[in-house]
Amino acid sequence: MSGLARQRWTLATVLLVPLLVLAAPAPLRLAGVPPSWAVLWLLPWALADGPLSGALLGAVLGLLLDSLHPGPLTQLPVLVLMGWWWGRLGRRGAPIERSFSLGLLALLGTALLGASLALQQLLWGLSSAATVHTLLAQTLLTGLLAPMLCSLQLLLWRQLAPGLRS
């Protein structure tokens, strides 16, 4: 675990995710579906701070987001998995900074998250026509927003914790 997590207030920015989920700002919605704010926050964090920090913050985000929904669906396992995966990617090879790479990782992460939710809905008998619509719109929108938002966050984390790999 490197410098980012040691700076308490950078950790506190994780609280922005549930607040943005609750606010669901209208200009940042596609066909009524907001982007996956959890993916947009977790991707640069995990890339910058490593797999353990990524997985732990994935768990934190999962618990926070699950608390906002009364149903049995959970985002926690996929967020932990992706936090770990992105953290490992950030530790290997060249730093991931290119817009296309960030967009692609966010797209895959959102698709995986959406697919896990769709699967859970299917298992719990909650599936509806809106599931596919939400999955597609959210994946596309998150993939489009990620290059801009994740690059900015990476830049910010790098300034706050010099010596990070990406």
């Binding site: 609280l15 549930p18 607040l19 609750l22 606010a23 768990a59 934190v60 618990l63 926070l64 699950d66 608390s67 906002l68 009364p70």
Partner: peptide
């Protein structure tokens, strides 16, 4: 965070 989860996000809703 587990406490927040068990309280069904009461703190988050109030903060929002």
């Amino acid at each position: 965070v587990l406490g927040v989860r068990l309280s069904k996000g009461a703190f988050l809703s109030d903060a929002y």
